[in-house]
Design a protein around this nucleic acid. Structure first.
Lengths: 347, 347
DNA sequence: GACAGTCCTGAGAGCGCTTCCAGCGGGGGG
DNA sequence: CCCCCCGCTGGAAGCGCTCTCAGGACTGTC
């Protein structure tokens, strides 16, 4: 690749001149070469190579009205995002899929509730063709924003309003939270545990609710004293565990709605001298490698393919964009990915 | 904001028409309004508001040759990126700073060694004005790529070649690894520990080397049997600890080059029934909240302001871009950020 | 009251690309 | 042998914006 004096990259015009064709033909070749005779294609390609031609993205976007970029909006105001490998993994999956389709990833971190204006402006600004978003709370302004901006969007995690029968159908990708929770609790039950407690996540997150539902599915009529609410953080898990122990010193198992809370619970149990899993068995959720494998004892938990979810989100979105462009193809539908129980030492 | 039928956003032309001015004047107002009389400014702004006008980014880029976007290149092939909150925090800082300057963040994850071609093509494609990059190994092709593409770049972490007297000076932001390590080891020494071991990071990372140097600064002539090499992961820390215990059962302190390795070491010590900090004191590095506070016992470690480093990187880059544009201002210089020892229970 | 100087404004060129449309040449059917 | 049609190519328009440049309105000065 020839070195370029900054700000003077060769244009299509130059390529065309060198190849002895018109700019139109050069353009056609650069974009796939359909309907151009072989010898001309070769001449143009050679010129491209010799000149080190790279298409000007802005010019192309200007006329095609497609940016080849997708926004990833992360609207998690909590500190949690820092310590949660969850996002990194999803993003890795997203990145892989987008890259494979020559699409760029623009990261939009929402810096607090007042920041949605900026996000709205950006999304409406034609900078991106579509968006991927996470962690929708009930009153999240994002869906309205993307709808108004006409930006196709795929969500990570089931949006809370989708339980409603409304027509607000949006495509999303989510793990089988309910099924995973069922498997976890059933496993504890099969172990012979009789007083299985639950440390739930924040009730405004559907993943937390779905996991709670799965817990209820197995235990049918649940004693409310066996259920405590956490916030998906280590600290909240510890607090919830302490609370549960106070209320129900006789509990013999805990299903925590995520690994971080399970690790907090584990700490409290250890501090109180409660043997895990002998006296209290504990199961987490997520199978975050940095957590589940490093707790003491290692955590039995529910695995979900987080990177795969990211890939899937991107794939769904790209498919939708393609559909918009070609005007045909199946409408993108939501996907629920499977979960599996991973047995380690904590239960 | 009026709802837009997709694909028919108002143009500057429309704004100008509605305001009864020329496109040129409308443009001036949209870009700050310098040299336009107040009444006209108001008329244009009102038209902008009524029409919900948002400038077309591609068109603007096409003529200004500036994209208003910056690439963040993460070339960490290791699995480490998944479980390491380090990046999330840096990115958060970068995002904050870029956002404050109306600049977008394009995330480029390098998907393996063969992927650099794609990165090079992208960086040369005029999609971004500058780049931020991390974790440079000695033979990293990135600096050459950005140089050839004429893309100003700021690095996170001291690049390995900067020890050389070469003219390859690049601006970077790094923590005071050596100073932090010195403080940690000196602290252990002041505690009365006499056989202080070190679990180092991979020797091709300057942060690992600098921390080792800091360790050596305090201990002057170090017994090589007290130094083991890890890979900045929990597992490698555990392995290194086992190795050290075998070689030097008499050691009474460990300085690990990061928190993850410290946590691995902690696990091994616990398994062997070694009391921490009574028999062996241990100090980590990074003060990663998800790790240092949740180990048992909580980790004494060296804190660095990771988010601040991210901010700083972005600021340095933006300043450089501004300088390129205006042709004046001080050349961006590297910055070393301070570190502080955080006392918890492990030492 | 005329003229120079200042301050604003608008016309227009052009950024690099895609794409419509017209035109050209050649092959096959009448 | 002529005409039509098809496949390919080039000319040219135009995407939405910025910015130069020229000219108009106005002020101040002599």
């Amino acid at each position: 690749m020839p070195e370029q004096p900054p700000g003077s990259r060769p244009t299509l015009e130059a390529v065309a001149a060198r190849a002895g064709v018109s700019r139109a033909t050069a353009s056609r070749v650069v974009n796939g070469g359909d309907g151009v005779r072989k010898p001309l294609v070769d001449k143009v390609l050679q010129a491209v190579d010799e000149l080190g031609y790279i298409p000007n993205h802005a010019a192309r976007t200007l006329v095609t009205r497609r940016t080849g970029a997708v926004a990833v909006v992360i609207a998690e105001p909590e500190i949690r995002i820092f310590s949660d490998p969850f996002f990194s993994q999803q993003i890795r999956g997203i990145s892989k899929e987008l890259t494979a389709h020559d699409t760029q990833l623009v990261l939009l971190l929402v810096e607090g509730p007042g920041d949605f204006d900026r996000i709205a402006r950006y999304l409406s600004g034609g900078h991106v063709d579509g968006a991927l978003a996470f962690s929708l709370h009930t009153d999240d302004p994002l869906p309205a924003i993307t709808r108004r901006a006409g930006i196709p969007t795929v969500y990570g995690g089931r949006p809370s309003w989708t339980a409603d029968p409304g027509d607000q159908a949006v495509p999303y990708v989510d793990a089988d939270n309910r099924g995973g929770a069922r498997a976890a609790v059933r496993y504890l039950k099969d172990l012979g545990r009789e007083r299985i407690a639950h440390i739930g996540g924040p009730p405004d997150q559907t993943s937390a609710m779905d996991r709670l539902d799965g817990y209820r599915d197995v235990l049918l009529d649940v004693d409310p004293t066996l259920v405590a609410e956490g916030a998906f953080t280590v600290e909240s898990g510890a607090r919830a565990m302490a609370e549960l122990l106070e209320r129900r010193p006789d509990l013999d198992a805990v299903f925590a709605a995520n690994d971080l809370m399970a690790s907090g619970a584990l700490r409290v149990l250890r501090e109180r001298g409660v043997a895990v899993p002998e006296q209290v068995a504990i199961v987490g959720f997520d199978d975050m490698d940095s957590v589940a494998e490093t707790t003491d004892p290692p955590l039995t938990t529910v695995n979900q393919d987080i990177e795969g979810q990211g890939r899937l989100m991107a794939r769904l979105l790209l498919r939708g964009l393609d559909r918009d462009r070609t005007g045909s193809g199946p409408a993108p539908d939501s996907v629920i990915t499977p979960t599996t129980l991973v047995r380690r030492a904590s239960a």
